[in-house]
Amino acid sequence: MSVVEATAVKPAQKNRNERKLTIAKALNEAIAQEMRRDKNVFLMGEDIGILGAVWGYTGGLLAEFGEERVRDTPISETAFIGAAVGAANLGMRPIVELMFVDFYGVCMDAIYNLAAKSSYHSAGTFKAPMVLTTAVGGGYCDSTQHSQCLYATFAHLPGMKVVMPSNAYDAKGMMTSAIRDDNPVVFMMHKNLQGMGFLGTIQGAIVDVPEDSYTVPLGKANVVRDGTDVTIVGLGMTVHQGLEAAKTLEKEGVSAEVVDLRSLAPLDRDTVCRSVQKTGRLIVVDDDYLSYGVTAEIIATVTERDIKSLKCPPKRIAFPDIPIPFARPMEQHCLPNVRKIVAAARAMM
């Protein structure tokens, strides 16, 4: 297993006041602590300096670490993501910001051919320890090119880790792990969980975060609610929808277990299968496009390993295979939501 896990530090939990942070603040703290700890860690990307990043997680870093280590770039994603690979090859640990995941189309070669294959086709000699941060998700009327998730697009391509926290505690620990990882990590931030002043935030994402540095291992799913009748699998925002649905179902006498994947690559198939063996029913919720995606991968995993663990056909709830429309009635109709999850669970009972 990775170095990260071996050196995991348990935070001091006793004798301290609760401190609720947004994901943005938690990420900021993780990055600042790692930059103090390791001079090879630096930030590079669009609007991460004086603005503090569009997604609010780099505020104050310019003041503390200066322009050398907090580098605003021109709008040249191919160059600066490629540059991150070259710098990482020589031992730096860049954190690079891609802003919206939708923008990967202008620079995908640097991600999937350069970063993701650097280790493999050099037999591990040209390492690419870098974190690529990017925001995902819609639901706030940002239309076709600013609302996508594209989890499956990245998770499909070997050689990079692909992760997304659903709350601030995981965000800090996973970012610390990502920075210390010797492989490229695509670190996704869900806009509806991030804690931005200009956008609503699901309150469940804002949780107590220890001040001390700690790690949450990449590649480990988290059972965020125990249950016995149905397993609801999600990541990021859909975890919170699953938790809401579980509350409603509980009133109806249905006990739902909710699994937060946290990482798509590596994918913690064991935790998912263990849960389904217990509950016998499976609903996978994903705000990325439906076909060839996370929902299919999870269901294929469960059916390949032990189809007899399922008491009824599994159900997937995901964004349909259409571009994301602007107008609220159309977009909301297509997105996964609590109502759809509850209905799916009821139909299984």
Binding site: R69, A79, G82, G86, N89, L114
Partner: peptide, 15 residues
């Protein structure tokens, strides 16, 4: 493809 990485390597040397 090699342009970006070489620029990044130069950045690492300079930093």
């Amino acid at each position: 493809q090699n342009m970006g990485p070489a620029v990044g390597a130069a950045l690492a040397r300079k930093m």
